Simulated assay, not measured.
Amino acid sequence: MLDRVRTVGYAAYERLLRSEIGGAPDHVAVIMDGNRRYARKEGEETTEGHREGAQTTEQLLDWCDELGVREVTLYTFSTENFDRPAEQREFIFDLVEEKLRTFADADRVHDAGVCIRAIGEREMLPDRVLDAIDYAEAKTAGYDALNLNIALAYGGRAELLGAARDVARSVQAGELEPDDVDVDTVAESLYQGPTRDVDLIVRTGGDERTSNFLPWHANGNEAATFFCTPYWPEFRKIDFLRAIRTYQNRQESWRTTRARRALALVRAVGDRDVSQAMATLRRFRDALPSAEREQADEEYELAD
C-alpha cells in the first residue's frame, strides 16, 4: 500500500513539474557524481555503483530525447581519475567500452538520431576504449538530432592549455597574426565535441562545484547550475525536471533584468534613436511585469 502511495505521489509531482516547464535547455552537461558512495551506502562493491550509474545514464538520454534537449555532455572520467586504484580504473574502462558499443548498436539510439563523440586527452586511454570510441563515432556520425559528448580523460584546464598552445604555434609559424586571435580562433582549437554553449550543468552527489568541467562552454555562457544530493544511481526523472525548472527560472530572471536595463537606458538618454537599447527593450519587453510593460508600451510604442 505504501509503495502504491509513493508511486501515485511521484507521478503527480512529475506532472506538476512538467506543467511548470515551458521548454528545455539546448545543452545539458552532467557531472555524474556519487557512484562509489552509493555502493558503500548499499553495502555493495564499488563496481556495482558504477554499473547502476550506467543504467541512470541510459535513462537520462531517454528523458533528454523526450524533452527536446539537443546536446548532452557527460563527465565520465576526468584526468584526475587516473589517480584511482588500477582495478577501479580498469572496471570503468571496461564499462565504458561496453556501453559505447551497446549504444552504437542500439535501435533507440539510431531512431533518435544520436551522434556520439568523445572529448578529452584520448592518448591517455587504453586501446580497447579508443577502439570502442572509433566504433561508436563511426556508427552515429550521420546523426544530429541529439549530440552525446562523452568526456573521457577530460580536464577543463588541459583543454584550454591545449588550445592556447595550438594558437601559439600558429602565431609562431606565421599562419596567424596575434591581433587576429579571437573567440572563434580559440573555439576551433578546443576538443571537437560540443557544438553549442552549455545552458545547464547538473551535479549529483551533494558537492556544489563544477570541478573543472567545460569552463569555456559553460562559464562563458554563464550556464545555470543545479546541485542535488542524490547519488548518480539514485537520480530520478523528477530531479532532472527540477534542474530544468531551475534553468528556466534563471532564464526568465535574466530576460527581465535585460529588459529593465534597456528601459532604464532609454529613459536616461531620452532619445528614441538609441537603437541598440530600443532593440533590446523590444526583444525582452514580454519579460517585464504587466504594469511595467504597459507603461513602456505607452512611452515608446513597443507593442506590435
Rank of each mutant, 00 (worst) to 15 (best):
A153S: 15
Q55I: 15
E98K: 15
L95C: 05
M1K: 10
H110G: 13
L288W: 08
T79L: 14
V5T: 13
R209E: 05
R165E: 13
Q59N: 14
E20Y: 03
I116G: 02
T140G: 02
L241Y: 13
G23Y: 13
R272L: 12
R261E: 14
F77G: 10
S170D: 14
C64N: 09
G34C: 04
G270D: 05
L302N: 00
L265Y: 11
D83K: 15
Q295W: 02
Y300L: 12
T210M: 14
D65V: 07
L288V: 07
Y231M: 06
V109T: 10
R36E: 05
F77D: 12
G142E: 11
D3Q: 15
V109H: 00
A268P: 08
T256P: 00
Y13E: 15
R283I: 00
L200G: 08
G270F: 07
H110F: 03
A291G: 14
D3R: 15
Q192L: 09
E52N: 12
R117T: 00
E71A: 10
A12Y: 14
C64Y: 04
R258F: 00
D179Q: 14
A224Y: 03
I116E: 04
N149Q: 07
F91A: 02
V171T: 06
A136K: 08
D180C: 07
I92H: 01
T225C: 03
Y75H: 13
G22Y: 05
M278S: 01
S275G: 11
R84H: 07
L214P: 06
G120W: 01
T76K: 03
A187C: 03
G22M: 01
W216C: 00
R209T: 07
R122L: 08
P289N: 12
F284E: 12
R18A: 11
G206R: 00
E87G: 04
A218E: 06
R203D: 08
E58I: 09
D271A: 03
A262D: 03
D62H: 13
A224D: 01
L190E: 13
S170I: 04
E234A: 12
T246C: 02
E137Q: 07
Y154T: 11
R283A: 07
A277Y: 06
E175F: 02
H217P: 06
M32C: 01
E97P: 08
R196N: 07
E66M: 00
G68H: 06
H217I: 03
F77P: 02
A29F: 08
R15G: 12
M278D: 02
L302Y: 01
A163Q: 06
V96M: 01
R108D: 13
R108E: 09
G142R: 07
V181D: 11
S211H: 06
A24V: 02
L148D: 03
A151P: 14
E301C: 04
A291N: 14
D26Q: 08
N249D: 14
E252Q: 07
S170R: 15
V28E: 04
D62M: 04
R15P: 10
D94N: 11
F226T: 11
T185K: 01
P233H: 06
S290Q: 15
L130R: 14
Y75I: 08
T257S: 05
I92F: 00
R157Q: 15
T204G: 05
T47C: 05
A112H: 10
F93Q: 02
C115G: 11
Y13H: 15
A112T: 15
T195V: 04
R272S: 12
G49S: 12
L60F: 15
W216H: 09
Q248Y: 05
R36K: 12
D273G: 14
A164M: 05
